[in-house]
């Protein structure tokens, strides 16, 4: 397959062209933290400052807050109407491979059993354009989680920095179709391909943090009832929820109603298993103690998700390490799980 390339100076033109068909989202610091935001039509400075977003791109398909439907009480009783569908599909520009993989992991939950129409309608119509990392963070451990920082099979198109140009890889049929309709791209040469290969390896080697996840599912199962261990793991956690809210594979949400006079909205919003009220029922709460909630977070990613979907729900993006206010470190926790053959009771 012959790849294409685009000169870095031509990115503005490329995004403008794509903007005619799609709602283009790109990294932005407009809101105060780096997040995917609708591109303003001119600013490409993110190509210089961007390492990864603070808010993961899952927010494009599972927004922090989302209207599910409106309801109105009239003479004939309640009338219920879902929100109108977005007019244009989204194109996310510069998604990192760790986050692209995370969305593939999220798909498993939203597709299984009964499909989630809000997430899937946005996700399935979207185009993901990946950008290879050239400068991974100290907290990143993607290479231990089966992700390569400058390679991805989970995007439609993949860009790799090869100097003055980006190599443009056509990853999916959807990506290929978009490229066939895109003007101003040049054919990549053998030399460009060689540079890309080198760049991929260089990026890979820059990820120095390693995590051994061998046998982790069984180790966690055997340690499930080891209260002393979990108390220690949870000791410094302040239950702020940031490691879950900003985790690219976390999907938990709450559903609530808002009523103004006779007009109401039902909406969903991100929630976290770190919050005490998350599992609270009027008569009791199975996870009142903090260690039970921290155990849930760790086991959900490294034990339960593998049991259900045969994949660890962590891509090594490092956000939970970078953004934790008390330096809680998932890689240290995973490495400290005792290797037991018998379950501790």
């Amino acid at each position: 397959m012959a790849n294409k390339k685009v000169n870095k100076k031509d990115i503005t033109g490329l995004l403008k062209e794509w903007g005619q068909q799609f709602a283009v989202f790109a990294p932005s610091r407009e809101s105060g933290v780096a997040a995917m935001a609708e591109w303003d039509g001119k600013d490409t400075s993110f190509l210089d400052w961007y390492r990864n977003t603070v808010v993961p791109p899952k927010a494009s398909f599972l927004p922090p807050m989302e209207e599910m439907f409106r309801f109105q009480k009239g003479k004939e009783g309640y009338n219920i109407a879902p929100p109108p569908k977005a007019e244009r599909s989204q194109l996310l520009f510069d998604v990192r491979p760790c986050d692209a993989r995370a969305m593939a992991i999220l798909d498993m939950t939203f597709e299984q059993a009964l499909e989630d129409p809000y997430y899937l309608s946005k996700r399935k119509s979207a185009i993901l354009v990946g950008l290879g990392c050239t400068n991974p963070c100290e907290s990143c451990f993607c290479t231990s989680m089966g992700v390569s920082p400058a390679e991805s099979a989970d995007v439609d198109l993949m860009l790799i920095d090869i100097g003055d140009d980006f190599l443009v890889e056509e990853v999916t049929a959807k990506g290929k179709e978009l490229i066939s309709k895109t003007s101003g791209l040049k054919e990549a040469t053998k030399e460009d391909e060689a540079k890309a290969k080198q760049a991929r390896k260089a990026s890979y080697d820059k990820v120095t943090r390693k995590l051994d996840t061998g046998g982790i599912k069984d180790k966690l199962l055997a340690s499930f009832d080891d209260e002393e261990f979990w108390e220690k793991v949870a000791a410094k956690c302040i239950s702020c929820g940031i490691c879950t809210l900003l985790c690219p594979t976390c999907y938990c949400f709450d559903i609530n109603d808002e009523l103004v006079k006779q007009e109401g909205t039902r909406f969903r919003s991100w929630d976290s298993c770190g919050f005490p009220n998350y599992t609270k029922m009027p008569m009791e709460n199975p996870r009142q103690e903090k260690w039970r909630r921290v155990r849930q977070k760790v086991c959900h990613k490294y034990e339960f998700y593998p049991m259900t979907f045969n994949v660890i729900a962590c891509t090594g993006c490092g956000r939970c390490i970078r953004l934790c206010p008390v330096n809680w470190d998932i890689t240290q926790v995973i490495e400290s799980v005792p290797a037991r053959t018998e379950a501790k009771k």
């Binding site: 009964l114 969903r268 929630d271 199975p286 086991c299 959900h300 339960f304």
Partner: peptide
């Protein structure tokens, strides 16, 4: 079993016992 639930269809996360969702 009864657990706190929001979605009822295995998406919102909170009703699990181990790897099993009470709803799903």
């Amino acid at each position: 079993l009864e657990k706190r639930m929001k979605c009822g269809i295995g998406k919102c996360g909170r009703c699990n016992i181990g790897n099993l969702y009470v709803c799903r």
